[in-house]
Design a protein around this nucleic acid. Sequence first.
DNA 1: GGAATTTCGTAACATATCTTACAAAATGGT
DNA 2: ACCATTTTGTAAGATATGTTACGAAATTCC
Lengths: 224, 224
Amino acid sequence: MKEALYESGLFHGIKADKVDEILQTIHHQYKSFQKDEYLYYSGESCEDMNLLVEGSVRGEIVDFRGKVVKVEDIFTPDVFAPAFLFATENNLQVDIIANTKVRVLRISKREMIELLNRHPRIMENYLRIISDRFVIITQKMKFLSLKTMRGKIAHYLLMREKRKQQNKQIRKHKTQEQLAEYFGVTRPSLTRELKIMEKEGLIYLQDKEIKILDKARLLDLMRR
Amino acid sequence: MKEALYESGLFHGIKADKVDEILQTIHHQYKSFQKDEYLYYSGESCEDMNLLVEGSVRGEIVDFRGKVVKVEDIFTPDVFAPAFLFATENNLQVDIIANTKVRVLRISKREMIELLNRHPRIMENYLRIISDRFVIITQKMKFLSLKTMRGKIAHYLLMREKRKQQNKQIRKHKTQEQLAEYFGVTRPSLTRELKIMEKEGLIYLQDKEIKILDKARLLDLMRR
DNA sequence: GGAATTTCGTAACATATCTTACAAAATGGT
DNA sequence: ACCATTTTGTAAGATATGTTACGAAATTCC
Protein backbone atom coordinates (compact mmCIF):
# COMPACT_ATOMS: atom_id res chain seq x y z
CA MET A 1 0.00 0.00 0.00
CA LYS A 2 2.83 2.35 0.84
CA GLU A 3 4.59 1.21 -2.30
CA ALA A 4 1.65 2.59 -4.27
CA LEU A 5 2.61 6.03 -3.02
CA TYR A 6 6.20 5.72 -4.10
CA GLU A 7 5.14 4.66 -7.57
CA SER A 8 2.43 7.26 -7.99
CA GLY A 9 2.63 10.00 -10.57
CA LEU A 10 2.31 12.53 -7.80
CA PHE A 11 5.59 11.56 -6.16
CA HIS A 12 7.34 10.60 -9.36
CA GLY A 13 11.03 11.38 -9.24
CA ILE A 14 11.08 11.55 -5.45
CA LYS A 15 12.78 8.85 -3.43
CA ALA A 16 10.74 6.71 -1.05
CA ASP A 17 12.28 7.99 2.16
CA LYS A 18 11.87 11.54 0.96
CA VAL A 19 8.20 10.83 0.32
CA ASP A 20 7.81 9.64 3.89
CA GLU A 21 9.60 12.73 5.11
CA ILE A 22 7.36 15.01 3.07
CA LEU A 23 4.20 13.30 4.31
CA GLN A 24 5.28 13.87 7.89
CA THR A 25 5.31 17.60 7.28
CA ILE A 26 1.70 17.80 6.11
CA HIS A 27 -1.69 16.77 7.37
CA HIS A 28 -3.11 13.81 5.54
CA GLN A 29 -5.41 10.90 6.16
CA TYR A 30 -6.28 7.52 4.76
CA LYS A 31 -9.83 6.53 4.07
CA SER A 32 -11.31 3.19 3.06
CA PHE A 33 -14.40 2.30 1.04
CA GLN A 34 -16.28 -0.88 0.23
CA LYS A 35 -16.86 -2.09 -3.28
CA ASP A 36 -19.69 -0.12 -4.95
CA GLU A 37 -19.59 2.55 -2.29
CA TYR A 38 -19.81 6.14 -3.51
CA LEU A 39 -16.67 8.16 -2.77
CA TYR A 40 -18.27 11.28 -4.18
CA TYR A 41 -21.65 12.17 -5.54
CA SER A 42 -22.04 14.37 -8.56
CA GLY A 43 -22.64 17.92 -7.44
CA GLU A 44 -20.73 17.48 -4.21
CA SER A 45 -17.84 19.88 -3.79
CA CYS A 46 -14.34 18.53 -3.75
CA GLU A 47 -12.10 19.87 -1.01
CA ASP A 48 -9.35 17.27 -0.98
CA MET A 49 -6.78 15.75 -3.21
CA ASN A 50 -7.47 12.02 -3.54
CA LEU A 51 -4.74 9.54 -4.33
CA LEU A 52 -5.74 5.90 -4.73
CA VAL A 53 -3.43 3.59 -2.83
CA GLU A 54 -5.53 0.46 -3.17
CA GLY A 55 -8.19 -0.72 -5.58
CA SER A 56 -9.88 1.14 -8.43
CA VAL A 57 -12.74 3.56 -8.90
CA ARG A 58 -14.81 4.68 -11.84
CA GLY A 59 -16.26 8.02 -12.78
CA GLU A 60 -19.77 8.07 -14.15
CA ILE A 61 -21.37 11.07 -15.73
CA VAL A 62 -24.73 11.80 -14.28
CA ASP A 63 -27.35 13.95 -15.83
CA PHE A 64 -30.08 15.75 -13.94
CA ARG A 65 -31.70 12.39 -13.60
CA GLY A 66 -29.81 9.24 -14.49
CA LYS A 67 -26.42 7.89 -15.41
CA VAL A 68 -25.29 8.44 -18.92
CA VAL A 69 -21.71 7.40 -19.61
CA LYS A 70 -18.87 5.85 -17.73
CA VAL A 71 -16.05 8.34 -18.08
CA GLU A 72 -13.11 6.23 -17.10
CA ASP A 73 -11.62 3.86 -14.59
CA ILE A 74 -8.88 5.09 -12.30
CA PHE A 75 -6.48 2.57 -10.84
CA THR A 76 -4.01 2.60 -8.01
CA PRO A 77 -1.77 4.60 -7.74
CA ASP A 78 -3.48 7.45 -9.54
CA VAL A 79 -5.10 10.66 -8.41
CA PHE A 80 -8.75 10.97 -9.27
CA ALA A 81 -10.71 14.12 -10.03
CA PRO A 82 -7.50 16.18 -9.91
CA ALA A 83 -9.07 19.12 -11.66
CA PHE A 84 -12.13 19.64 -9.51
CA LEU A 85 -9.99 20.45 -6.52
CA PHE A 86 -8.74 23.69 -8.02
CA ALA A 87 -11.63 24.69 -10.25
CA THR A 88 -13.61 27.81 -9.41
CA GLU A 89 -16.78 25.77 -9.67
CA ASN A 90 -15.44 22.85 -7.68
CA ASN A 91 -18.56 20.73 -7.76
CA LEU A 92 -17.93 17.32 -9.20
CA GLN A 93 -19.64 16.58 -12.50
CA VAL A 94 -19.40 12.85 -11.97
CA ASP A 95 -20.12 10.18 -9.43
CA ILE A 96 -17.02 8.45 -8.15
CA ILE A 97 -17.75 4.82 -7.31
CA ALA A 98 -15.52 2.10 -5.90
CA ASN A 99 -14.98 -0.77 -8.34
CA THR A 100 -13.32 -2.76 -5.59
CA LYS A 101 -12.37 -2.33 -1.97
CA VAL A 102 -10.59 1.00 -2.04
CA ARG A 103 -8.17 3.02 0.05
CA VAL A 104 -7.31 6.65 -0.63
CA LEU A 105 -4.81 9.16 0.68
CA ARG A 106 -6.48 12.50 1.25
CA ILE A 107 -4.81 15.88 1.51
CA SER A 108 -6.80 19.06 1.91
CA LYS A 109 -6.67 21.79 -0.68
CA ARG A 110 -4.87 24.18 1.64
CA GLU A 111 -2.20 21.63 2.49
CA MET A 112 -1.95 20.65 -1.13
CA ILE A 113 -1.14 24.18 -2.17
CA GLU A 114 1.57 24.28 0.48
CA LEU A 115 2.96 21.04 -0.83
CA LEU A 116 3.02 22.28 -4.40
CA ASN A 117 4.74 25.47 -3.38
CA ARG A 118 7.39 23.74 -1.33
CA HIS A 119 8.21 20.95 -3.79
CA PRO A 120 8.71 21.96 -7.40
CA ARG A 121 8.85 18.36 -8.45
CA ILE A 122 5.43 17.63 -7.00
CA MET A 123 4.07 20.74 -8.64
CA GLU A 124 5.31 19.61 -12.02
CA ASN A 125 3.89 16.16 -11.34
CA TYR A 126 0.49 17.51 -10.40
CA LEU A 127 0.36 19.73 -13.45
CA ARG A 128 1.18 16.73 -15.57
CA ILE A 129 -1.51 14.65 -13.91
CA ILE A 130 -4.22 17.22 -14.52
CA SER A 131 -3.01 17.83 -18.03
CA ASP A 132 -2.89 14.16 -18.93
CA ARG A 133 -6.40 13.72 -17.67
CA PHE A 134 -7.42 16.66 -19.80
CA VAL A 135 -5.93 15.06 -22.87
CA ILE A 136 -7.77 11.82 -22.15
CA ILE A 137 -11.10 13.53 -21.79
CA THR A 138 -10.49 15.48 -24.98
CA GLN A 139 -9.91 12.23 -26.80
CA LYS A 140 -13.03 10.81 -25.26
CA MET A 141 -14.94 13.81 -26.51
CA LYS A 142 -13.51 13.38 -29.95
CA PHE A 143 -14.79 9.85 -29.85
CA LEU A 144 -18.24 10.80 -28.68
CA SER A 145 -18.50 13.33 -31.45
CA LEU A 146 -18.15 10.62 -34.05
CA LYS A 147 -21.60 10.27 -35.50
CA THR A 148 -21.98 6.79 -36.83
CA MET A 149 -21.55 3.51 -35.06
CA ARG A 150 -19.21 2.43 -37.82
CA GLY A 151 -17.06 5.43 -37.15
CA LYS A 152 -16.85 4.53 -33.49
CA ILE A 153 -16.06 0.91 -34.21
CA ALA A 154 -13.38 1.91 -36.69
CA HIS A 155 -11.89 4.42 -34.26
CA TYR A 156 -11.85 1.89 -31.46
CA LEU A 157 -10.24 -0.81 -33.54
CA LEU A 158 -7.60 1.45 -34.98
CA MET A 159 -6.68 2.86 -31.58
CA ARG A 160 -6.41 -0.63 -30.17
CA GLU A 161 -4.20 -1.59 -33.09
CA LYS A 162 -2.00 1.43 -32.47
CA ARG A 163 -1.65 0.58 -28.78
CA LYS A 164 -0.69 -2.98 -29.59
CA GLN A 165 2.01 -1.81 -31.93
CA GLN A 166 3.36 0.53 -29.30
CA ASN A 167 3.31 -2.43 -26.93
CA LYS A 168 1.30 -0.54 -24.42
CA GLN A 169 -0.92 -2.33 -21.92
CA ILE A 170 -2.92 -4.77 -23.95
CA ARG A 171 -6.22 -4.57 -22.17
CA LYS A 172 -8.39 -7.55 -21.69
CA HIS A 173 -10.94 -8.58 -24.21
CA LYS A 174 -14.23 -6.72 -24.00
CA THR A 175 -17.53 -8.47 -24.52
CA GLN A 176 -19.91 -7.07 -27.10
CA GLU A 177 -22.11 -6.04 -24.22
CA GLN A 178 -19.33 -3.89 -22.77
CA LEU A 179 -18.34 -2.56 -26.16
CA ALA A 180 -21.92 -1.55 -26.84
CA GLU A 181 -22.05 0.32 -23.56
CA TYR A 182 -18.75 2.01 -24.37
CA PHE A 183 -20.10 3.11 -27.72
CA GLY A 184 -23.41 4.15 -26.28
CA VAL A 185 -25.44 1.83 -28.51
CA THR A 186 -27.49 -1.27 -27.82
CA ARG A 187 -25.94 -4.68 -27.96
CA PRO A 188 -28.06 -6.14 -30.79
CA SER A 189 -27.33 -3.09 -32.92
CA LEU A 190 -23.63 -3.51 -32.36
CA THR A 191 -23.72 -7.18 -33.22
CA ARG A 192 -25.64 -6.48 -36.38
CA GLU A 193 -23.21 -3.81 -37.49
CA LEU A 194 -20.20 -6.00 -36.71
CA LYS A 195 -21.63 -8.84 -38.80
CA ILE A 196 -22.30 -6.49 -41.69
CA MET A 197 -18.77 -5.17 -41.49
CA GLU A 198 -17.55 -8.74 -41.50
CA LYS A 199 -19.55 -9.51 -44.62
CA GLU A 200 -18.02 -6.48 -46.27
CA GLY A 201 -14.57 -7.80 -45.48
CA LEU A 202 -13.58 -4.97 -43.19
CA ILE A 203 -13.09 -7.11 -40.11
CA TYR A 204 -13.09 -10.71 -39.05
CA LEU A 205 -14.81 -12.08 -35.96
CA GLN A 206 -12.89 -14.94 -34.46
CA ASP A 207 -13.10 -16.40 -30.96
CA LYS A 208 -15.00 -13.31 -29.82
CA GLU A 209 -12.09 -11.21 -30.96
CA ILE A 210 -12.35 -8.56 -33.63
CA LYS A 211 -9.55 -8.69 -36.17
CA ILE A 212 -8.84 -5.93 -38.65
CA LEU A 213 -8.82 -6.94 -42.30
CA ASP A 214 -8.99 -3.69 -44.23
CA LYS A 215 -7.31 -0.86 -42.37
CA ALA A 216 -7.54 1.62 -45.20
CA ARG A 217 -11.30 1.37 -45.48
CA LEU A 218 -11.68 1.57 -41.72
CA LEU A 219 -9.80 4.85 -41.74
CA ASP A 220 -12.16 6.01 -44.41
CA LEU A 221 -15.18 5.30 -42.22
CA MET A 222 -14.16 7.86 -39.69
CA ARG A 223 -14.80 10.73 -42.04
CA ARG A 224 -18.32 10.80 -40.80
CA MET B 1 -3.10 45.42 -24.81
CA LYS B 2 -1.02 45.59 -21.66
CA GLU B 3 -4.22 46.01 -19.69
CA ALA B 4 -5.28 42.60 -20.92
CA LEU B 5 -2.34 41.14 -19.02
CA TYR B 6 -3.27 42.80 -15.78
CA GLU B 7 -6.82 41.53 -16.03
CA SER B 8 -5.91 38.02 -17.06
CA GLY B 9 -6.64 35.02 -14.89
CA LEU B 10 -2.95 34.19 -14.95
CA PHE B 11 -1.95 37.35 -13.12
CA HIS B 12 -5.08 37.62 -11.05
CA GLY B 13 -4.41 39.09 -7.63
CA ILE B 14 -1.11 40.60 -8.72
CA LYS B 15 -0.75 44.35 -9.09
CA ALA B 16 0.01 45.82 -12.49
CA ASP B 17 3.49 47.12 -11.64
CA LYS B 18 4.34 43.79 -10.07
CA VAL B 19 3.27 42.06 -13.30
CA ASP B 20 5.64 44.27 -15.26
CA GLU B 21 8.38 43.50 -12.80
CA ILE B 22 7.78 39.75 -13.07
CA LEU B 23 7.77 39.87 -16.85
CA GLN B 24 11.15 41.57 -16.83
CA THR B 25 12.63 38.59 -15.03
CA ILE B 26 11.59 36.00 -17.60
CA HIS B 27 11.97 35.52 -21.31
CA HIS B 28 8.78 36.12 -23.19
CA GLN B 29 7.64 37.26 -26.59
CA TYR B 30 4.62 38.64 -28.33
CA LYS B 31 3.35 37.15 -31.55
CA SER B 32 0.64 38.38 -33.94
CA PHE B 33 -1.67 36.50 -36.28
CA GLN B 34 -4.13 37.47 -38.99
CA LYS B 35 -7.78 36.53 -38.88
CA ASP B 36 -8.27 32.86 -39.88
CA GLU B 37 -4.58 32.11 -39.49
CA TYR B 38 -3.73 28.85 -37.73
CA LEU B 39 -1.90 29.37 -34.45
CA TYR B 40 -1.48 25.65 -34.00
CA TYR B 41 -2.33 22.60 -36.04
CA SER B 42 -3.75 19.51 -34.44
CA GLY B 43 -0.94 17.07 -33.76
CA GLU B 44 1.65 19.80 -33.38
CA SER B 45 3.42 19.79 -30.04
CA CYS B 46 2.90 22.68 -27.69
CA GLU B 47 6.04 24.07 -26.08
CA ASP B 48 4.81 27.45 -24.90
CA MET B 49 2.21 28.96 -22.67
CA ASN B 50 -0.06 31.17 -24.76
CA LEU B 51 -1.93 34.09 -23.28
CA LEU B 52 -4.26 36.01 -25.56
CA VAL B 53 -3.74 39.76 -25.23
CA GLU B 54 -5.80 40.78 -28.25
CA GLY B 55 -8.59 39.17 -30.26
CA SER B 56 -10.10 35.71 -29.97
CA VAL B 57 -9.33 32.21 -31.18
CA ARG B 58 -11.33 29.03 -31.50
CA GLY B 59 -10.40 25.40 -30.98
CA GLU B 60 -11.68 22.89 -33.48
CA ILE B 61 -11.54 19.17 -32.99
CA VAL B 62 -10.12 17.43 -35.99
CA ASP B 63 -10.45 13.81 -36.75
CA PHE B 64 -8.11 11.77 -38.93
CA ARG B 65 -9.79 13.48 -41.80
CA GLY B 66 -12.01 16.47 -41.26
CA LYS B 67 -13.28 18.88 -38.69
CA VAL B 68 -15.84 17.57 -36.29
CA VAL B 69 -16.78 19.97 -33.53
CA LYS B 70 -15.88 23.45 -32.49
CA VAL B 71 -14.69 23.02 -28.94
CA GLU B 72 -14.85 26.55 -27.73
CA ASP B 73 -13.92 30.14 -28.29
CA ILE B 74 -11.21 31.70 -26.18
CA PHE B 75 -11.21 35.45 -25.72
CA THR B 76 -8.68 37.98 -24.51
CA PRO B 77 -7.32 37.82 -21.81
CA ASP B 78 -7.41 34.04 -21.46
CA VAL B 79 -4.79 31.35 -21.80
CA PHE B 80 -5.52 28.79 -24.50
CA ALA B 81 -4.58 25.11 -24.54
CA PRO B 82 -3.26 25.38 -20.98
CA ALA B 83 -3.24 21.63 -20.48
CA PHE B 84 -1.28 20.58 -23.50
CA LEU B 85 1.79 22.42 -22.31
CA PHE B 86 2.31 20.07 -19.37
CA ALA B 87 0.80 16.85 -20.68
CA THR B 88 3.08 13.88 -21.29
CA GLU B 89 1.62 13.57 -24.74
CA ASN B 90 1.82 17.25 -25.50
CA ASN B 91 0.50 17.09 -29.02
CA LEU B 92 -2.51 19.28 -29.50
CA GLN B 93 -5.78 17.49 -30.22
CA VAL B 94 -7.30 20.56 -31.78
CA ASP B 95 -6.61 23.20 -34.37
CA ILE B 96 -6.30 26.68 -32.92
CA ILE B 97 -7.55 29.28 -35.36
CA ALA B 98 -7.70 33.06 -35.11
CA ASN B 99 -11.26 34.40 -35.12
CA THR B 100 -9.92 37.92 -35.45
CA LYS B 101 -6.57 39.67 -35.61
CA VAL B 102 -4.78 38.15 -32.65
CA ARG B 103 -1.85 38.89 -30.41
CA VAL B 104 -0.45 36.41 -27.89
CA LEU B 105 2.11 36.50 -25.12
CA ARG B 106 4.30 33.42 -25.25
CA ILE B 107 6.38 31.97 -22.45
CA SER B 108 8.33 28.75 -22.87
CA LYS B 109 7.58 25.71 -20.76
CA ARG B 110 10.91 25.94 -18.97
CA GLU B 111 10.37 29.59 -18.06
CA MET B 112 6.80 28.88 -17.14
CA ILE B 113 7.84 26.29 -14.58
CA GLU B 114 10.26 28.81 -13.11
CA LEU B 115 7.49 31.35 -12.92
CA LEU B 116 5.12 28.95 -11.20
CA ASN B 117 7.76 27.97 -8.67
CA ARG B 118 8.70 31.52 -7.84
CA HIS B 119 5.19 32.92 -7.58
CA PRO B 120 2.67 30.91 -5.59
CA ARG B 121 -0.12 33.14 -6.69
CA ILE B 122 0.58 32.49 -10.35
CA MET B 123 0.78 28.78 -9.66
CA GLU B 124 -2.63 28.81 -8.04
CA ASN B 125 -3.94 30.86 -10.91
CA TYR B 126 -2.59 28.48 -13.49
CA LEU B 127 -4.01 25.47 -11.69
CA ARG B 128 -7.36 27.19 -11.62
CA ILE B 129 -7.16 27.98 -15.31
CA ILE B 130 -6.46 24.39 -16.29
CA SER B 131 -9.04 23.08 -13.87
CA ASP B 132 -11.76 25.42 -15.06
CA ARG B 133 -11.09 24.41 -18.62
CA PHE B 134 -11.38 20.81 -17.54
CA VAL B 135 -14.76 21.46 -15.99
CA ILE B 136 -15.96 23.13 -19.17
CA ILE B 137 -14.92 20.25 -21.34
CA THR B 138 -16.53 17.80 -18.94
CA GLN B 139 -19.78 19.68 -19.26
CA LYS B 140 -19.41 19.65 -23.01
CA MET B 141 -18.95 15.92 -22.87
CA LYS B 142 -21.99 15.53 -20.71
CA PHE B 143 -23.91 17.39 -23.34
CA LEU B 144 -22.58 15.31 -26.20
CA SER B 145 -23.52 12.16 -24.35
CA LEU B 146 -27.17 13.13 -24.33
CA LYS B 147 -28.78 10.80 -26.79
CA THR B 148 -31.85 12.46 -28.15
CA MET B 149 -32.17 15.78 -29.89
CA ARG B 150 -34.93 16.70 -27.48
CA GLY B 151 -32.58 16.09 -24.60
CA LYS B 152 -30.01 18.38 -26.14
CA ILE B 153 -32.54 21.09 -26.86
CA ALA B 154 -33.90 20.86 -23.32
CA HIS B 155 -30.42 20.97 -21.85
CA TYR B 156 -29.46 23.95 -23.94
CA LEU B 157 -32.59 25.91 -23.11
CA LEU B 158 -32.41 25.20 -19.39
CA MET B 159 -28.74 26.17 -19.22
CA ARG B 160 -29.44 29.37 -21.11
CA GLU B 161 -32.24 30.09 -18.68
CA LYS B 162 -29.97 29.48 -15.73
CA ARG B 163 -27.32 31.82 -17.16
CA LYS B 164 -29.88 34.52 -17.70
CA GLN B 165 -31.04 34.30 -14.13
CA GLN B 166 -27.49 34.52 -12.89
CA ASN B 167 -27.09 37.56 -15.11
CA LYS B 168 -24.07 36.12 -16.79
CA GLN B 169 -23.06 37.20 -20.28
CA ILE B 170 -26.23 36.95 -22.30
CA ARG B 171 -24.89 35.65 -25.56
CA LYS B 172 -26.28 36.74 -28.85
CA HIS B 173 -29.13 34.95 -30.51
CA LYS B 174 -28.14 31.85 -32.43
CA THR B 175 -29.73 30.95 -35.74
CA GLN B 176 -31.25 27.51 -36.11
CA GLU B 177 -28.42 26.72 -38.48
CA GLN B 178 -25.87 27.42 -35.75
CA LEU B 179 -27.89 25.61 -33.15
CA ALA B 180 -28.12 22.57 -35.37
CA GLU B 181 -24.38 22.57 -35.80
CA TYR B 182 -23.92 22.93 -32.06
CA PHE B 183 -26.18 19.97 -31.45
CA GLY B 184 -24.60 17.95 -34.21
CA VAL B 185 -27.84 17.50 -36.11
CA THR B 186 -29.11 18.77 -39.44
CA ARG B 187 -30.99 21.97 -39.65
CA PRO B 188 -34.30 20.63 -41.04
CA SER B 189 -34.37 18.00 -38.31
CA LEU B 190 -33.91 20.66 -35.68
CA THR B 191 -36.66 22.84 -37.12
CA ARG B 192 -39.04 19.91 -37.25
CA GLU B 193 -38.33 18.97 -33.65
CA LEU B 194 -38.70 22.56 -32.47
CA LYS B 195 -42.07 22.84 -34.18
CA ILE B 196 -43.24 19.60 -32.64
CA MET B 197 -42.14 20.77 -29.23
CA GLU B 198 -44.01 23.98 -29.85
CA LYS B 199 -47.18 22.08 -30.71
CA GLU B 200 -46.80 20.11 -27.50
CA GLY B 201 -46.66 23.32 -25.55
CA LEU B 202 -43.12 22.88 -24.29
CA ILE B 203 -41.71 25.96 -25.95
CA TYR B 204 -42.79 28.94 -27.95
CA LEU B 205 -41.06 30.20 -31.08
CA GLN B 206 -41.26 33.93 -31.30
CA ASP B 207 -39.17 36.29 -33.38
CA LYS B 208 -36.63 33.52 -33.92
CA GLU B 209 -36.26 33.26 -30.21
CA ILE B 210 -37.05 30.12 -28.28
CA LYS B 211 -39.09 30.75 -25.16
CA ILE B 212 -39.59 28.16 -22.45
CA LEU B 213 -43.19 27.35 -21.60
CA ASP B 214 -43.02 24.15 -19.58
CA LYS B 215 -39.83 23.91 -17.59
CA ALA B 216 -40.84 20.81 -15.67
CA ARG B 217 -41.44 18.73 -18.75
CA LEU B 218 -38.21 19.95 -20.32
CA LEU B 219 -36.31 18.69 -17.30
CA ASP B 220 -38.05 15.40 -17.78
CA LEU B 221 -36.84 15.13 -21.35
CA MET B 222 -33.25 14.93 -20.30
CA ARG B 223 -33.69 11.56 -18.72
CA ARG B 224 -32.88 10.02 -22.06
C1' DG C 1 -19.04 -33.92 -18.25
C1' DG C 2 -23.48 -31.97 -17.48
C1' DA C 3 -26.14 -27.95 -15.83
C1' DA C 4 -26.36 -23.11 -15.28
C1' DT C 5 -25.06 -18.80 -16.95
C1' DT C 6 -23.21 -15.68 -20.05
C1' DT C 7 -22.42 -14.16 -24.61
C1' DC C 8 -23.57 -13.92 -29.37
C1' DG C 9 -26.51 -14.13 -33.66
C1' DT C 10 -30.65 -12.86 -35.72
C1' DA C 11 -35.26 -11.22 -37.00
C1' DA C 12 -39.49 -8.06 -37.24
C1' DC C 13 -41.02 -3.96 -36.33
C1' DA C 14 -40.65 0.89 -34.26
C1' DT C 15 -38.51 5.30 -34.10
C1' DA C 16 -35.29 9.14 -34.77
C1' DT C 17 -32.74 11.53 -37.67
C1' DC C 18 -30.84 12.41 -42.39
C1' DT C 19 -31.19 13.90 -47.23
C1' DT C 20 -32.85 16.66 -50.61
C1' DA C 21 -35.63 19.95 -52.31
C1' DC C 22 -38.46 23.85 -52.44
C1' DA C 23 -41.14 27.75 -50.85
C1' DA C 24 -42.34 31.26 -47.41
C1' DA C 25 -40.77 34.62 -44.30
C1' DA C 26 -37.53 37.70 -42.39
C1' DT C 27 -33.58 40.59 -42.70
C1' DG C 28 -30.13 43.73 -44.54
C1' DG C 29 -28.17 46.90 -47.92
C1' DT C 30 -28.75 50.71 -50.96
C1' DA D 1 -39.24 50.62 -50.59
C1' DC D 2 -37.12 47.17 -53.28
C1' DC D 3 -34.00 43.49 -54.26
C1' DA D 4 -30.70 40.07 -52.59
C1' DT D 5 -29.59 37.13 -49.08
C1' DT D 6 -30.34 34.63 -45.06
C1' DT D 7 -33.29 32.14 -42.20
C1' DT D 8 -37.13 29.27 -41.29
C1' DG D 9 -40.93 25.89 -42.35
C1' DT D 10 -42.23 21.70 -44.52
C1' DA D 11 -42.52 17.30 -46.93
C1' DA D 12 -41.25 12.50 -48.96
C1' DG D 13 -38.42 8.99 -48.87
C1' DA D 14 -33.95 6.87 -47.11
C1' DT D 15 -31.11 5.23 -43.45
C1' DA D 16 -29.37 4.13 -38.87
C1' DT D 17 -30.27 2.56 -34.66
C1' DG D 18 -33.51 1.02 -30.98
C1' DT D 19 -36.73 -2.58 -28.95
C1' DT D 20 -38.01 -6.96 -27.94
C1' DA D 21 -37.70 -11.57 -28.17
C1' DC D 22 -35.76 -16.01 -28.83
C1' DG D 23 -32.50 -19.63 -29.85
C1' DA D 24 -27.60 -21.13 -30.50
C1' DA D 25 -23.05 -21.18 -28.96
C1' DA D 26 -19.62 -20.64 -25.63
C1' DT D 27 -18.04 -20.43 -21.01
C1' DT D 28 -18.06 -21.27 -16.10
C1' DC D 29 -19.24 -23.87 -12.13
C1' DC D 30 -19.90 -27.96 -9.54
